[in-house]
Design a protein around this nucleic acid. Sequence first.
DNA 1: ATTGATACTTACTTTTTGGTTGGTATCCCA
DNA 2: TGGGATACCAACCAAAAAGTAAGTATCAAT
Lengths: 120, 120
Amino acid sequence: MPEKTYQIGVEATMEVIGGKWKSIILCHLRLKPMRTSELERAIPQISQKMLVQQLRELEAANIVDRHVYQEVPPRVDYRLTEYGHSLSGILHDLCVWGEENIDLRREQGEEITLLHRDDL
Amino acid sequence: MPEKTYQIGVEATMEVIGGKWKSIILCHLRLKPMRTSELERAIPQISQKMLVQQLRELEAANIVDRHVYQEVPPRVDYRLTEYGHSLSGILHDLCVWGEENIDLRREQGEEITLLHRDDL
DNA sequence: ATTGATACTTACTTTTTGGTTGGTATCCCA
DNA sequence: TGGGATACCAACCAAAAAGTAAGTATCAAT
């Protein structure tokens, strides 16, 4: 087996929550389980392909659990696993820091808007 | 001016610390100011180009300050700005979570190594 | 038999990110 | 006069990530 090495812990964390979409998805799932279509509505810019792909990667990392209801029409939701919840504090802090960053930049004259402030 | 919009705070945060290198650089600078050559040694996989490029972007975001000493041979170091320090807690948590993630994966049989555990 | 709803899946293209190589600039010192 | 040391920059190319569009599968209701 080829050995994988990291220089510093944050590298491993960023493999899990890095990229354009994973942290956004996780910030939503942190608050409640959500169906595919709900996530699509909450993250309007994401394509179906990226949503599914990122969810699969989060499942593989044991962060997200895919829950299938035995119903017709089909129904699935996604939720943080117990291990996934260990990211909850970090995700919260990332959201809050970003909100403050946006406030600051707007005060400095940047044209910038935050649409949905999830007050957590 | 074209208005920039975010759906959720974490998007803005990830613009600042996202990508392959920024969080790693910041985790080092969090502990002490460092010279270019020191950062190169601390992050052996990074190319000069990426190091400089990422530092410039962090400067532009007011996270990192470039400090030039008036000496020959030239000497420069980089350090977190006061605003940059507001990320310190998050950076610490990202490192710690990653270290624990690596431990867990090794316990589960993955061939995986963390070279430098900065005990903070 | 056709449509509607949901949740994917695949093939293909574009964009973004990162890597390599080879350069510049400054000044001291031998 | 020509290394050596440090920091940085530019041109070019490769690889990875993300976007688009269209198709599959299931089963119920009409």
